[in-house]
Amino acid sequence: MASQEIYYVPDGSKWPIVGTLSLFITFMGGAMMFNNAPGGLYVLILGLATLVYMFAGWFADVISESLAGKYSKQVDVSFRMGMGWFILSEVMFFAAFFGALYYARAFSIPWLGGEGQGLHNGTHEFLWPAFQAMWPMNVMPDPSNYTQYKDTIPAFGIPAVNTALLLTSGVTCTFAHWALKKEQRKALCLWLAATVLLGIIFVGFQAQEYVHAYNDLDLTLNSGIYGSTFFMLTGFHGFHVTMGALMLAVILFRSLKGHFSKKDHFAFEAVAWYWHFVDVVWLGLFIFVYWV
């Protein structure tokens, strides 16, 4: 709600345009690589490097403004809203992939396997007579185009461990927050470090799982709709965990420098929200991708 305070409107800044350019270069590089154009990789790297430069510079500005006390309560609320709605948009991004998973399991595979009589009469009979609907599906309707896998990753192996890790990291993250509120800097840093560590271990396990899937199980992106949804969902999630861990690491670094106070620690909270979001998405993954 509105307040009587004066709102901080920053002076012109170069970071937005640098950010735009960095994304532009990154996309250019990516597109060039897909088209096998020479030099694509270098353009991509240049773009990513500029991106990192932009984030560092932009956040440095924000941090110094914040430390200089320029931000009022109201500015803080704007940041909170920004982060909150950003996370919602991320939720919707994942929703697209969960939707694809649901669709494949509830509609396309059963239809290919002969269900949905009346509507798709003949799909099975005339096009895929040999195909049997199943989930996980390891015999594709047309096996010649796709890699058949030997097995899937069981839920109660690494994934269960990873669930425990991530849930624990959510708890340690909350402990860190409590410590921050009690102004116990040392505890804050320790709990944060634990959170980052758990995140890293998670990603490590995930990487190992991927290696196992590719090398031993022949489970790849090319393994039909199962492989597609499996790797895209876990992959995007893994990417988010990596980003989250990176952000937590920055927060840890800033905590070590004593940036946050009991009242004023939005950056910490934003990253914590993000971390919890990543956590919740994982639960969805664990249940719908690995388990049921």
């Binding site: 939707g99 594709m140 992106l221 039909g224």
Partner: peptide
């Protein structure tokens, strides 16, 4: 090589239309 929209791999071109 994913097959979200290819029936041969268990997907469906129509899935894209829903999305």
């Amino acid at each position: 090589g994913t097959s979200f929209f290819d029936a041969a791999g268990g997907g469906d071109p129509v899935l894209f239309q829903h999305i």
